[in-house]
Design a protein around this nucleic acid. Structure first.
Lengths: 234, 234
DNA sequence: ATCTGTTGGATCGTACATTATTTCACATTT
DNA sequence: AAATGTGAAATAATGTACGATCCAACAGAT
């Protein structure tokens, strides 16, 4: 799979080839334009994307296979509702996988790779969390440098899929100041560990990084829920 | 062995509702009736399952999302070809996930759970690898006792999916005598570790178990390839 | 107020049209 | 004459339209 359409925000999308219906719906789910638990009527989507219903149905089935959509017989499809438990489940898997991927990267990293990582990190620090969405893209690119060339495509794809889901969520929440500091610190620690060829240290840092990221997202979700869905004044 | 497509679903005959097209195709892929890399023409499948093409197309899309089939634009679908690298990738992920699941099981296992595990193990030993397919079912049930109640549904589902793929492959190969011994020994070790509440030991045993299982499958695949490519419908 | 028949809407299955690809005969070239 | 390029027909995937079926909400009657 390896959908390498990572950094394009489908605005200049028409330049290459028209994205498939599947990709369009997927992007709309990840970006939040189609909200979690939103009903997905094939007729509506057909008019929305200017096609007939059959491509919509097939795209939804594929998305169901990827767990982005849930379907009940004769009752249609909905965007997968994402709750704290779901995020926790994904994070627990990533805490296992990402350190393993990182360890291998340590054994093949070159000077050029270190330079790339430092450049990506510099961009993150320069941007300094100004825009949550853009930060998400930069942060994804940073970690992608480490995982993308891994020989285990299955594991890398799994990371990517989880990453997109998490990005879709964290996009809606602010990043606390303490979390920002931790992110920057852990990234720097990670680069240092890789440079020092200390695979165990790098794995430990990544595990802590993922764990902390997940905890932060879950906390933000809890805050958002306590403050009530929409309906601001209290 | 020709055909016998009809009676192969006997074990689940109690199921009242007719299986969906998706489930039928999926079963045919896992059971090997649809061979790896086989071309999947919607028209053929439509006549095969006695329906029109649309349900077939949607089922294939879902299976694509689950990575059971691969599709190229305008060139149709094929059963995912499974090679050694693919198995290795899955095993590497399982080596990470299964120990973690097992550790948690240690903390919640009851006497009744131990009894169930021993009963499942007794069945495996009684059967003694007489029929590869049946052994696969028994072995799956053994491990399922450990993973099925885990709170992390995502991880458990991932295990189940990988398990089905591996079962589909190993079903075609014999189990070497040394591997058989190892399987039984490791299962007993695992039960003992759980009984002794030694989570680390249990995790270590499981990691070794998965690793060995994967290595064995990959070796068998290599043997099969050297002994000449399969006869088959192409 | 609960139950039942009706109605509206959406999903699901079938048939057909369109578009792309593969195949194979045939002509051209070396 | 063998090899290769061309093009038309066959084959199969993709898209569109429509009828059948199922479910949910609602109106009216007991």
């Amino acid at each position: 799979m390896t959908a390498t359409a990572a950094d394009d925000t489908n605005e200049f999308a028409a330049s290459e080839q028209p994205l498939s219906i599947y990709e369009l719906i997927r992007e709309d789910i990840i970006s939040g334009r189609l909200e979690p638990n939103a009903r997905l009527k094939v007729a509506d989507l057909a008019t929305r994307y200017g096609t007939s219903t059959n491509p919509i149905r097939e795209a939804l089935q594929q998305l169901r296979g990827e767990d982005f959509v849930v379907m009940e017989p004769n009752r249609g499809a909905r965007v997968r509702p994402i709750d704290e438990a779901f995020v926790r489940d994904i994070i627990e898997i990533e805490v296992l996988i990402e350190p393993a991927l990182t360890k291998w990267f340590c054994s093949i990293a070159t000077d050029a790779d270190i330079v790339d990582l430092e450049a990506a990190q510099a961009e993150i620090e320069a941007h300094n969390f100004a825009d949550p969405k853009h930060h998400g893209e930069l942060d994804t690119r940073f970690h992608q440098l480490i995982y993308d060339r891994h020989y285990n495509r299955h594991a890398a794809d799994l990371w990517w899929k989880h990453r997109e889901i998490l990005r879709a969520i964290s996009r809606r929440f602010p990043t606390s100041l303490s979390r920002r500091q931790a992110v920057l610190r852990e990234h720097r620690e990670l680069i240092e560990a890789i440079r020092a060829q200390d695979a165990d240290k790098a794995a430990e840092v990544v595990a802590r990084h993922v764990e902390g990221s997940g905890r932060h997202i879950i906390e933000q979700m809890g805050v958002a829920k306590r403050n009530g869905p929409r309906r601001g004044s209290a």
